[in-house]
């Protein structure tokens, strides 16, 4: 599996390595950054900080509720805690603790949910975060960020620390290609990035699906269809202005996400578009199912999360658009 191959994207790095490097560079810059780990630092790569700054690194053990509470206590002393684990373990084990101590308290805490989506692959559904974005969606004060490439992961980690308040960062385990140049990319919380221009329809994606959307757009271009591709790296606050402009300009939208369709990115984009400028929409994502454990590439095919699925959805959306006009 090589995401972004069709679109000619350069191969990147495993996102957890990128996260670990970004967190380490942030910890070097900012002495207030502390890291809490739920005994997964070697998987999330948060442990890069452990080696450099052992006094600012706490392995709380396999106790996510306690991890969140301790993080909140540290925050109350003016520190900036990064709570790190798999997104499924943090959100499913410690939802109420995050709700009270982070979200309701408007605490300046950053949460890394690693191994989001299904592409952790062979460890199977107990480890996967297919509902994480819906769960954090239930916390009204939480900024929600999804990383789509190595460059933006650096920006997200540093940007989250500059923002005062609760932030959730979702990452996936896989190698993500470079969507942006290696040294820089635009990143403002709440401001979506147009990563490819086009006026026939808009593909709105987050996480690994941005690369697949670019693959799909390359194939569509060969058919003479010019798709605009949006990297929606911030799910809260939603970039209403850009989303509505895309709906207005292109008249058809496909949403693609590595998440359940129920309560995910597409559902929230659809609400916004339906409210202000309805256009035909189609959705690529998990349809009310858990997955099995297998190679990530096989899972993406089986559960219809590939560039081919995006192309299919694009044709459907374009057909619907034609019927209207």
């Amino acid at each position: 599996m090589q995401l972004g191959k069709r679109a000619g994207l350069r191969s990147g790095k495993p996102m957890r390595d990128v996260f670990g490097e970004a967190l380490l560079s942030l910890a070097q810059e900012n002495p207030r950054v502390v890291v809490l780990d739920g005994d997964l630092g070697n998987s999330t790569k948060a442990d890069m900080v452990r080696k450099a700054f052992p006094e600012r690194y706490f392995n709380i053990g396999i106790a996510e509720s306690n991890l969140v509470g301790i993080g909140a206590g540290l925050e109350s002393c003016g520190l900036i805690p990064f709570l790190t684990s798999f997104s499924s373990f943090l959100l499913c084990n410690a939802y109420d603790q995050i709700r009270l101590a982070v979200a309701m308290s408007n605490a300046n805490i950053k949460i890394l949910g690693s191994h989001g989506g299904i592409t952790l692959g062979k460890d199977g559904p107990t480890q996967m975060g297919i509902e994480d974005l819906a769960l954090v969606g239930g916390m009204p004060t939480m900024v929600i960020l999804v990383a789509s490439d190595p460059t933006i992961m650096h920006k997200i980690v540093h940007g989250s620390a500059q923002h005062t308040g609760p932030v959730f960062i979702r990452s996936s385990r896989v190698v993500m290609p470079f969507i942006y140049p290696e040294d820089n990319c635009p990143f403002t919380i709440g401001k979506a990035n147009v990563v490819k221009n086009g006026d026939d329809l808009t593909i709105i994606a987050c996480g690994i699906m941005v690369a697949s959307a670019l693959d799909a757009a390359s194939e569509l271009a060969e058919e003479g269809i010019e798709a605009r591709v949006l990297d929606l790296h911030t799910l809260r606050p939603l970039d209403k202005e850009t989303l509505l402009r895309c709906a207005r300009d292109t008249g058809a939208v496909v949403c693609a996400e590595e998440h359940l369709l129920h309560g995910g990115m597409g559902a929230n984009v659809a609400r916004l578009i339906a409210e202000s400028h309805p256009v035909p929409m189609r959705f690529v994502g998990l349809r009310d199912t858990y997955t099995d454990s297998a190679d990530p590439a096989d899972l993406l095919v089986k559960y219809h999360l590939t560039s081919q699925d995006i192309i299919l959805a694009a044709h459907q959306a374009l057909n619907a658009k034609e019927k209207i006009s």
Partner: peptide, 20 residues
């Protein structure tokens, strides 16, 4: 100092304060 009402959460918070 903290948001409470869902029981069981305060001791972790207090521990975080002490570590901080």
């Amino acid at each position: 100092e903290s948001t409470n009402g869902s029981l069981g959460q305060g001791l972790s918070f207090g521990l975080g304060c002490v570590l901080g």
